[in-house]
């Protein structure tokens, strides 16, 4: 589980996100909100990519502020609009992520195969379309043995078949390995392939459980 304690994010003097207290239990969690509501900011904070005030605890054991390494090991993140160095191939990125996250290269290669981008595995990402880069970033989010995978708008820019394939991968990872997911969407999410255990709403610069 993830426990938020007095989490606050400000830009200059403007508060963009303020969560006094929140407990997100493990499961398949949907995070909804309008454009600019702060969903990406929240995910980036949990992934350790943005500075913030307050604290976030993993299983009441590891604090993002005090035991950062242990905390980050439990969290993987896929950006909504991923950017990678253009000269790197998918193979090099997979190796890099698997080395950093102590993951299995073969496993990620299998995911890329399921997402139909394995044939460009040895080509630089500069030759990829935005959808292919998105699929690659989603596969990379599965590197290693995280407890939570944060997926920021995972279903934008990718084709219908790939959406089904990703849902299948998410379900399998959740049921087989007990990995929890926090998935954002700015639209009303209606996907029969995923059965969310909880739904959160980012509204008025705070996060609450949707009714």
């Amino acid at each position: 589980m993830l426990r938020f304690e007095q989490v606050k994010k400000q830009y200059s003097s403007t508060t963009v996100l303020s969560v006094d207290s929140l407990l997100i239990n493990k499961g398949l969690v949907l995070l909804q909100g309008e454009n600019g509501s702060g969903k990406t900011t929240l995910l980036k904070i949990i992934a350790g990519l943005l500075p913030f005030e307050g604290n976030i605890l993993f299983n009441d054991t590891f604090s993002l502020k005090k035991q950062r390494l242990q905390f980050i090991r439990q969290i993987n993140y896929a950006e909504a609009e991923p950017i990678y160095p253009e000269f790197l191939t998918a193979k090099e990125l997979v190796k890099l992520f698997c080395y950093a996250k102590k993951g299995n290269v073969q496993f990620i290669e299998n995911l890329l195969e399921q997402l139909h981008i394995i044939d460009v595995y040895n080509k630089p990402v500069s030759t990829y379309s935005s959808g292919m880069i998105k699929k690659l970033s989603l596969a990379l989010a599965f590197a290693g043995t995280p407890s939570w995978i944060l997926l920021d708008e995972p279903f934008i820019t990718i084709d219908k078949n790939s959406v089904a394939a990703i849902c299948q991968i998410i379900n399998k990872k959740y049921s087989d390995d007990g990995v929890s997911f926090l998935i954002t969407s700015h639209q009303n999410f209606n996907n029969e392939n995923l059965s969310f255990t909880a739904s959160l709403l980012v509204q008025d610069h705070t996060v609450k459980f949707a009714e």
Partner: peptide, 16 residues
Amino acid sequence: NFEEEYLSISGNFPLS
């Protein structure tokens, strides 16, 4: 600049 633009995701790598 390169680090900031292209390697920001490495902040999520468990590196001390």
